[in-house]
Amino acid sequence: MSTALALSAGGVAMAAVPEDVFVPWIRTGLAIMLVALAALAAGMAYPRWRNIQRALRDQSPLPPPALAAVFGYGVAAVAVIALVLIILAI
């Protein structure tokens, strides 16, 4: 849930960036990407917690983080696009 909260805060922050920093439709797109990742993280939090609890009770290996790559690449894509736009604005 902390990942979902952080991604959601990032999306809100991206939406609040002044209009002269990024092109409005790009800023909105980046905010949507972050909030969509937040919704995915929040939606997957309980099933993951339940699977981890089951593995701990059964003393079996913990399940791998299935969506770690999605979150990693998604946040990296937003960061790279934002970085390029910041450099181009200078």
Rank of each mutant, 00 (worst) to 15 (best):
A79P: 04
D20M: 15
W49E: 07
V84R: 07
I86S: 06
A82E: 01
V21L: 05
P64G: 07
A82I: 01
F71I: 09
A45K: 04
R57G: 03
Q53V: 03
L34N: 10
R27P: 13
A66I: 12
Q59M: 03
P65V: 09
V17N: 03
L67Y: 14
D20K: 15
L88M: 06
I26A: 13
R48A: 14
M1E: 11
A39D: 07
P64K: 14
I52N: 05
A66K: 14
M44W: 14
T3A: 08
S2F: 09
L56T: 01
A16R: 15
W25V: 13
A31K: 13
F71L: 09
T3E: 06
L88P: 00
G43E: 08
F22M: 10
V17K: 02
M44I: 12
G29R: 14
A79F: 09
L34S: 13
G72V: 12
F22V: 05
L7E: 05
P65N: 08
L88Q: 11
L34E: 15
F22D: 03
V80P: 02
V80Q: 02
R57A: 05
V35Y: 02
D58V: 00
R48K: 14
I90M: 01
L5T: 08
P63V: 05
V75P: 04
A6D: 11
A6F: 11
I90D: 02
L7Q: 08
